[in-house]
Nucleic acid binder design. Sequence first.
DNA 1: TCTGGGGTCCTAGGACCC
DNA 2: TCTGGGGTCCTAGGACCC
Length: 441
Amino acid sequence: MLKELKARYKKKKNMKAIVDCNSFYCSCERVFRPDLAEKPVVVLSNNDGCIISISDEAKKLGVTMASPYFKMKKFIAENGIETFSSNYNLYGDMSRRVMDTLKAIIGKENVEVYSVDEAFLCMDEVRPEALQSFAKHIKDTVEQWTGIKVSVGVATTKVLSKVANRLSKKNKIATQGVMILNTPEKVTDALCKTQVSDVWGVGRKNAEKLIKFGIEDAYQLSNMNEEWARKNLGGVVGVRLIKELKGTPAIMMEDELVNKKMIASTRMFGSPVTSMQDIKEAVATYTSRAAEKLRRQQSAAGVITVFVVPKEEMLAHEHFRHGPTVSAHVTLPKATSITNDLIKPAMQLVEQIYKQGNLYKKAGVILSAIVPDATIQGNLFASEASNNKRMLMHMIDNINFSMRDDALKFASSGTERNWKMRQELRSPRFTSRWNELCEVK
DNA sequence: TCTGGGGTCCTAGGACCC
DNA sequence: TCTGGGGTCCTAGGACCC
């Protein structure tokens, strides 16, 4: 058994890396505010609702992830923590720079962008003895080219590379932000230092369950067999997880740019909304945004769902939960990506679910049953009008892309925007707006 | 007063068919 | 009067991720 394991590590092919940006949103803010380099920083979610990115310094002060801002406001002020509303234009742009850097280093085909601040790399071409220095090279280059600090974890499977990454982050000085698990001993050691709740793929529910079984760290979990996992850990999902922990790849590298199967646009309102008109405006705006995403991947949607969430009273001691969602959907006669053809049914759905007298705190649109857009080439048999509509859509997308802030809107989106979210502490969009460029004095 | 906004995958169970 | 068993497809909802 051990021999087998050793042999596998000796071959050392199939190594994967995860590159993960440190406190990504905070780091983005700091790139343009060097004065904040060593200072505690946090970034808030949309609507300034809760804290979603925390610098190490703020972490040390005791700020925790996902805590509601209104509860932390006083503490933040008292401790001089710098606070930003989220600025997704900036983060999206910085993300692209980081990913482009990775692609330049190791080749586009070896990069799987996993989220805005993470990418898996296929390390097959890297010689085993060079893994450490190569990983360090990646880290240093990204930092030099973009100003964003990253951590790198390398192992035979995605789950193990996440384990490595997490430990390198926790111990930045000793590891220099890089950890390679290339021997059975190193893997065992890393697993012993990882609690089950910190394993990628184990959420709150399963962590509680595992602890009841007496399984507390990742090493114990890795020793469970697959049949046990099938029964007790969510079927095939659990089986994959155990395999990965044992060092057998079960979650493969994926090709980039898989089209979305569902596209949503939803927001909390800045303050609760009662009028149907306001909800319609919001839903029309979300529909436009979702349709843009749809066209960007050259798809059309066959089903549109609209939902609203009424505001509900909650007792002070209650654990936060979302209220009951009220939704309705309709199957369109023909899949479409034309904003107008989506807004019309969306408005009817709003009328279906809206109740006079209710206070609403959130609404959203979900497009599903997504198929490739058959009319994308300009259909010879389609009416001229529908081809013209497509041209119009292209123009709107292009103008909005260059000017941003939805320079062109559909009339139904309204101009008052009583429902618009709060965003009081946003930093300038340094990299995507000419009039907000960094000023050098 | 005030708790984000996306996504994915899987399973169970109902409807339907032969 | 009797009312099986197996397959497929779809949907809602759960769990998880960042």
